[in-house]
Amino acid sequence: MTAAANASWALVSTIKAPLEEVLNFAAWHLELGAKRLHIYLDDPEDPAYPILKAHPRIRALRCDDSYWRRVTPKGRPERHQLRQVANASHCYNRKNSHDWLGHIDVDEFLVPEAPVAELLAALPDTCHSARLRPMELLAPEAPGPLLRFRAFSLPLARRHAQTERLYPEFGPWLNGGMLSHVAGKLFLRAGLPQVRFRIHKALSEGTELPEAQEMPQIPLAHLHARSWESWHAHYRFRLARGAYRAELKPMRPAFESSVTLHQLLSTLEEAEGEAGLRRFFTEVCTDRPALRQALAEESLLHEVRMDFARLRASHFPRAGQDVTS
């Protein structure tokens, strides 16, 4: 294969997570062939910093007060979404040597059907952005490297019909069964002037980029709900400031009785308490045999082997003590 058949790529992410999850994210994408990982540590005292900084393909930055004074006139943004896009924009507009830059979160993982470098190189020169659509984790009953994910169909009519078949109780108010975004995340080609990232889109010189090229060959595995305990622990934050916050649009705007996910979950909790939330989680988020079969019949079930322990040991052999301590 010639060099022309490959395109170098990098990722940028703003991260505040337990050390093991940070190293999982880094090791997975190093294994896939990322030329560089630009990791902005939201907590400037994050213990991951020396481990990441020591790796030759990782550029780790501490987002302390002095950093924010350099990057934004008003200092550190209060909302984490604004910090994410500020950091991604800062990264893109620096002098870099990679051909493409992707912006994703610490719980999102590229799952390419072929080497990422080849898939990006195959895009036409006129393509400036590529969209990666998510698939969400089905919370497993027991820990292990084999994880299952639910995807969704792009055509809306098909997606909504499938959602109602898959989730008989809550499907009418859901969009593909997805609790987080369906818009996906972007890779941007290098060389665009004055880029400003948004969470699901990007602008160049103040103008939104043309519609991104869909990249079904690189689904984005989103570990949004690893278990009931993990989901419930994150629930309040997501309801107030994250993926379930009140100001987001209804999940099915054209549906006559559509509500936001915030309204759906809040109403359910008010009426039934934690038991109602658990019933919702069981139907929509758990790796149940019946749901697996139904998803497979709709061609929406994906199985991915994610042996994070092996990858951490391979890419960060000296970090084992830090992860387990």
Rank of each mutant, 00 (worst) to 15 (best):
R318Y: 11
R79G: 13
H224N: 08
R278N: 02
H222K: 06
T2R: 01
Q263N: 09
A10E: 14
P143Y: 04
G206Q: 00
H90N: 14
R83M: 14
S153V: 07
G171F: 03
R150H: 14
S180T: 08
Q293H: 03
L147K: 00
L174N: 01
L209N: 01
H128Q: 12
W100S: 05
R83Q: 15
V195A: 02
V182Q: 00
L30N: 00
E214K: 00
P143N: 05
N93G: 05
P210V: 06
N96P: 08
I39C: 10
H38Q: 08
H222E: 13
R245L: 11
G276K: 02
S153D: 13
Q263I: 13
P253C: 11
F237I: 02
S227K: 01
L156P: 00
D322T: 04
W9D: 09
A161I: 04
A157Q: 12
H181W: 06
L11W: 01
P168L: 10
P18L: 09
A122Q: 05
D65H: 09
V111I: 15
T207I: 12
R165A: 13
L23F: 04
P250Q: 02
F170N: 02
A243L: 11
L239W: 07
P112R: 03
R236I: 13
A4V: 11
A157R: 09
A10R: 01
E208S: 03
S66C: 11
L264V: 14
R198W: 03
G276A: 12
F170K: 00
L264G: 12
P115N: 08
E118D: 08
S153T: 12
R131H: 07
Q213M: 10
D307S: 04
P77L: 02
R165W: 02
A27L: 06
P44C: 15
G171N: 03
P56D: 11
V111Q: 10
A88W: 15
N93F: 04
L295W: 00
F25L: 09
R236P: 07
A294W: 06
N175S: 14
A48P: 08
K35L: 13
L52G: 11
A243S: 13
D307H: 03
F170L: 06
E303H: 10
F25E: 07
E31D: 15
T72E: 13
M178S: 06
R36V: 10
R62G: 14
